[in-house]
């Protein structure tokens, strides 16, 4: 699949934003040992909303006819893209009410209604990321995406980036306890584990073959001629292919930048004093790694239409 920059930017950025607001809202709902101040909650929510909104705006650059984008909420009964769009739009009034009440000084861990609103905000954010993943997971034409690990990956990576940002922003606006930062690093470990399982899961060829694609199931089938001399929409969109060794190298880049480096930075860099610089390094590395991961998510996906362009199995 052609890795479109707008979609990579959208899924990484808004995924991190939803992860951050989910952690912030849920954290604020309970009376933990290190409660956030109202100002901190506002700062974290504002950063999350900037990330979410810039991601959503970027996603519209992927549309060839954005003037009809407003129609995209009309088929929520069947389409995961419509569900994602609707969840993303309806999230705004909920999070705005939450932010407004925080600004008015309502403490989420004291008032039952506010606790419920904070939890709703957090769960809604996670469900929105889930529906983003389901857009891809629901496509039976792409074996690498059509499995339960796809939405799980989207959620775990969103929460991981959100968790690291959460620590960084708390550190920037005051102080963050070592325990909280360690929890963020555990999220990195969990996200890495899920991603490694995903890489193994998509490793073995298991999809349709050129035989079922052409109905000749008892003989060898080879493409002689594809029928066009230049590229087509189909070859541009689905024919994207990268050399195997480069993909493996990029997997390592994603693993090192996205997971290994941030974990090591946190585990060995966590000190008594100000950890802001250390956390900033971890966040930057994690974002770069997840961007490579998202690029790979598209580049490694093989659409079955490639069977009509010469592939033997997808």
């Amino acid at each position: 699949m052609h890795p479109a920059f707008s979609v990579i930017f959208f899924t990484v950025t808004s995924g991190a934003g939803y992860g951050l607001i989910a952690i912030t809202a849920i954290y604020s709902a309970f009376d933990f040992s290190q409660p956030m101040t109202g100002e901190q909650t506002l700062l974290l929510s504002a950063v999350a909303l900037v990330l979410i909104t810039s991601g959503l705006i970027s996603s519209t650059f992927h549309l060839a006819n954005p003037k009809n984008a407003w129609r995209a909420f009309s088929r929520v009964r069947t389409s995961w893209l419509a569900r994602e769009g609707l969840l993303a739009i309806l999230f705004y009034p909920i999070v705005m009410l939450y932010v407004y009440l925080v600004w008015r000084g309502v403490d989420a861990s004291n008032s039952t209604a506010m606790t419920a609103l904070a939890l709703l905000t957090g769960v809604w954010a996670i469900v929105t990321v889930f529906s983003t993943g389901m857009i891809y997971a629901s496509l039976k034409t792409i074996r690498q995406w059509n499995n339960a690990l796809t939405p799980v990956n989207y959620i775990s990576l969103g929460l991981m980036l959100g968790g690291l940002l959460f620590s960084l922003l708390l550190s920037l606006s005051g102080d963050v306890s070592a325990n909280l930062t360690m929890v963020a690093s555990y999220m990195v470990v969990i996200a890495a584990t899920i991603k490694i399982v995903y890489f193994f899961w998509i490793g073995a060829p298991a999809g349709p073959t050129i035989n079922t694609a052409t109905s000749f199931t008892s003989r060898t089938v080879r493409l002689l001629d594809v029928g066009h001399t230049a590229g087509t929409f189909l070859t541009d969109e689905f024919g994207y292919q990268v050399a195997r060794d480069r993909l493996v190298a990029l997997r390592w880049v994603a693993m090192v930048l996205g997971f290994i480096l941030p974990s090591l930075i946190v585990w060995f860099g966590l000190g008594e004093g100000d950890n802001t610089l250390m956390l900033a390094a971890a966040v930057i590395s994690a974002f770069a790694g997840v961007a490579v991961e998202r690029w790979l998510f598209f580049a490694e996906a093989r659409h079955v239409v490639n069977l009509y362009h010469g592939a033997q199995q997808c």
Binding site: A64, P66, A69, K140
Partner: peptide
């Protein structure tokens, strides 16, 4: 709106 998702879904 030209989102391409239908083309992705078509085998």
């Amino acid at each position: 709106m030209g989102c391409n998702l239908c083309a992705w879904a078509c085998p």
